[in-house]
Structures are given as structure tokens and as C-alpha cells.
Amino acid sequence: MTVGDRRIIDLVRELVSEDPRVREDACGTVTDWVGSVDPREATLLAMILSSSAALEEDVRCRESQLHALVELSDTGLIRSRDFSPIHCMDRGFLQGSEVEYFEYLATEYKDSDSE
């Protein structure tokens, strides 16, 4: 089963919303849908989440974005290149569980850049 184009487009709009509460809620939707996404949808979501997390100024949103990336990574549908923007993040700005999520992704995909 896939999420489908219409629902993915709606979710993408929410993930890039100007309102941090909408972005945070959309990350929750991603985690709720991880069992329903296909590889194309997972890649799209990972690319958006990683680019957003790398630029995010709202701590709660960034934590939610990184959490959603970890959940997506656990599906086995995404590769390191799908979330490469997070590798440019300044780890000094990460707090609490953000550090754990970042380190998990960095460790889990350390040697898989060629995939």
C-alpha cells in the first residue's frame, strides 16, 4: 500500500509550512505513515525532511524532523544520499534527543554513501 500522490503533496505542503506547529504536526504524520510509504515516497520525504532539518531554527520542529528521518530510515527504503543535507548541520546547535537522532543516522549510514 502506498500513501498516494494527493496525500503526499498535501503532506509536503505541511512539511514546508511557514507555521512551525504545522511543520511539527506534519512530521508526526510522517512517522504515522512509515508503514504505508513506498520507496519513491520515502525518498521524497527523506529529502524534504533532511533539507528542512538542516535549515530549521525551531528546536521542536528540528527534533521532529530528525525523529521522522530515523523512523523512515528504519523502513530500509532510504539511503544515505536521501538525507545528506543533515551531514552539513552544525552539531553544536543540536539538543537532547536531536543529538541521538543525528548520531544514529550518521552511524547507521556511515559507509553506505555509495548506495
Rank of each mutant, 00 (worst) to 15 (best):
G28A: 05
V59Y: 08
S97N: 09
E63R: 13
D5I: 10
H67R: 14
E14G: 01
L77W: 00
T29G: 08
D113F: 12
D38P: 02
C61N: 11
V30K: 02
L55E: 14
A68S: 09
S36K: 15
E115Y: 11
S36R: 14
L94E: 01
E41F: 08
R6W: 09
S52F: 05
G28W: 05
I48Y: 06
R23L: 06
P39L: 06
A68Q: 04
T107F: 07
S36F: 15
E115D: 12
D25Y: 09
A26I: 04
D25V: 12
A54F: 08
T2C: 09
T43Y: 08
S73R: 03
D74F: 06
V37E: 01
R60S: 15
E24Y: 10
A106W: 08
M89H: 00
R79W: 04
D113L: 14
E71C: 05
M1T: 11
D90F: 03
V12I: 15
C27Q: 04
V37I: 12
E108P: 00
E115G: 07
I8P: 01
R91I: 15
D25I: 12
S36D: 15
T29N: 07
A42M: 02
R6E: 13
F93W: 14
W33R: 06
S36H: 14
E103T: 06
E98I: 07
E57Q: 15
E24F: 13
M1W: 10
D111A: 12
R13W: 08
R6A: 12
S36C: 11
S97T: 07
R7E: 14
S80F: 07
L45E: 02
R91Y: 04
L77Q: 03
P20H: 06
C88F: 13
S114W: 15
S97E: 11
G76I: 00
D82H: 05
R6I: 11
R23C: 04
E57H: 13
